[in-house]
Design a protein around this nucleic acid. Structure first.
Lengths: 341, 341
DNA sequence: CTGAAAGCGCTTACAG
DNA sequence: CTGAAAGCGCTTACAG
């Protein structure tokens, strides 16, 4: 009983339905004309045979693979799996699917990966948490593939990007901490090689500066839990320690809270910790982290719409979309008196 | 300055190199013969033109798309993004890539998704955290596509599976809790519609039974954080409460710990909580959860090897691979005196 | 080793 | 509306 795994093609369906192969194709091509009669015959035959048009063959003709390449570095930070899930769902609803490419954050690796990915004739490229050099972006663009950076911006490069309002976010945190009466505010920043890390830090410093204040200390946490924890250890080592730490993302902030507690300090009382992202874990009892929310849903929505537009219209200009997010007040940081928003 | 996004093909390379199109193809086909001279010419031309063979066109001929379909339900449980990342890396190293399909856990949705996914001519299907009905599995198998269930088993269906030793794991937890002198051991189980949920529970109950003990209470947490928290609330509502709870996975266990703490109890002292998975968060200070480790790396390795074998050999019999994992002792549960392993 | 030719499974002008 | 035919970019027997 060896079922030959014969792939059923449009020719098989045509034969069974008693029509031409072209007719079958038309029935499965939206916008093509076919009489109700043929349509019925074809659909019936297709169902009995279990026929679905071969996406790859179709892609060769139309030049549309309905595959979106997604380059992502680390899935450890809960923000990315979440974004991935939402992106996949939204894209799936539009008839697209995500082909995953994992890339360490070094430029050469990204290069190799992008070469690899272009061979799959993807319709568009989403780069999440990964930076792209100008040459690379140019190369992809030349191949006619739209690029959208997700949660990462880039200057002077002809690619689109969707981010949250990082500068404004950094400012909000500084204001919150300042109004909370903190005297020694430290910052363990997001990776300064990334736009998000730089913008959050700039906003924070700008607001501090406007208030005539200097941060207790500023270090680069590199978006790495271990690195951030090491930074926290350093900040807490001296005779004078900070009474607040703004951490560049939640993922690092959890590590910082662990260090803070290991030092016998209580977040929200003896020291304040504020993060950035509002991943689900931030709300859980183990951390209950005050943080800036990155509105994943709206970021995903913008990304998908933008991408679809760029796929339709090859001449569409790059856009930079920024979505604002609120400060979510929880218990990891002291709340200023009379704080409402 | 409109760069026509012209796709460079093997014909372009052939022209520039002064050889036939077939020659170009051979240079890029491993195992094909080409003289060093042509090879050099072709490679040089390919580099200047930025040529890469079109994977889709190649797939049409060879019948190998080098695309692996991955069906996954929820990425919220940290275990899955982690597995996904590792799978993607391992597969990428072998020249394959993952096409993502997200499916809610209802049977019809999975059906639609699988139809969708077969249209992409995937070389194999990995179903993670998703059950597949026998008919569906049969349908996919008939199309000649190998199926591997990741972290989910299935009886009486001709598909392969890779899981951890869930039965043994459940037993280990029971033994640990018993030896710890706990008197009222509750169980908030993994979804009883899944093999992992059932097996962990069976192992737990078998060992309890062998010791002549009855669990305090057994509820189905459905692998949902909210559901598990509701179960915990119920267990802690009565006048008599458990002194230990075995939770079907870490993701739920974190929620249970939150509830436990909200009741003023201290995990590891007034009550013990044990999970299953050992996701990274289990080690973090906020929870420090005692749990059974699912060896993701080895599970991924097994999955990839098994899949590759099945792609090579269409007649390969389904295999069921089970990887054992150790109990990782942390502070969320009382440690039996003299406990070494 | 190399080139000309067939063919993978489709879509899409082109006639009728 | 419908069918015959060309062609997407490749790989792979087939001759030489």
């Amino acid at each position: 009983m060896t079922d030959e795994p014969h792939k059923v093609t449009s020719v098989d369906v045509a034969r069974l339905a008693g029509v031409s192969q072209s007719a079958v194709s038309r029935v499965f091509t939206s916008g093509a004309s076919a009489s109700k009669k043929t349509k019925d015959k074809v659909l019936k035959a297709a169902t009995t045979l279990g026929y679905r048009p071969n996406v790859l063959a179709r892609a060769m003709i139309t030049g549309r693979s309905r595959i979106i390449g997604l380059v992502v570095a680390y899935l450890e930070n809960q923000f990315y799996p979440l974004a991935l899930e939402r992106l996949s769902n939204a894209l799936q609803a539009k008839g697209y699917h995500i082909l995953i490419f994992t890339a360490p954050n070094s430029a050469e690796d990204v290069e190799a990966v992008i070469q690899d990915l272009m061979a799959y004739q993807i319709d568009a490229l989403i780069a999440a948490s990964v930076s792209i050099t100008s040459e690379l972006a140019e190369q992809v663009r030349k191949a006619g593939i739209p690029v959208v950076l997700f949660n990462r911006g880039q200057d002077g490069v002809g690619v689109s990007s969707v981010t949250s309002a990082n500068l404004a976010g950094g400012r909000k945190v500084a204001r919150f901490l300042l109004e909370g009466g903190h005297e020694r505010i430290g910052h363990i920043a997001g990776w300064q090689g990334s736009s998000t890390g730089r913008d959050r830090q700039s906003g924070f410093l700008a607001e501090m500066n406007a208030a005539g204040r200097t941060p207790f200390s500023v270090m680069d946490g590199m978006y790495s839990r271990d690195e951030a924890m090491a930074c926290a250890e350093k900040m807490l080592a001296g005779p004078v320690i900070p009474d607040a730490i703004f951490v560049g993302n939640d993922h690092m902030a959890f590590g910082v809270m662990d260090v803070v507690r290991a030092h016998g300090l209580v977040p929200g009382h003896s020291i304040s910790v504020v993060g950035y992202d509002d991943v689900p874990l931030a709300e859980w009892g183990g951390y209950h982290l005050t943080t800036i929310r990155q509105p994943v849903n709206r970021m995903v929505e913008s990304t998908v719409n933008l991408m679809l537009r760029m796929i339709e219209d090859a001449d569409a200009m790059p856009e930079h979309i920024e979505v604002e997010g609120p400060l979510i007040v929880r218990s990891s940081a002291r709340i200023p008196e009379g704080w409402t928003k």
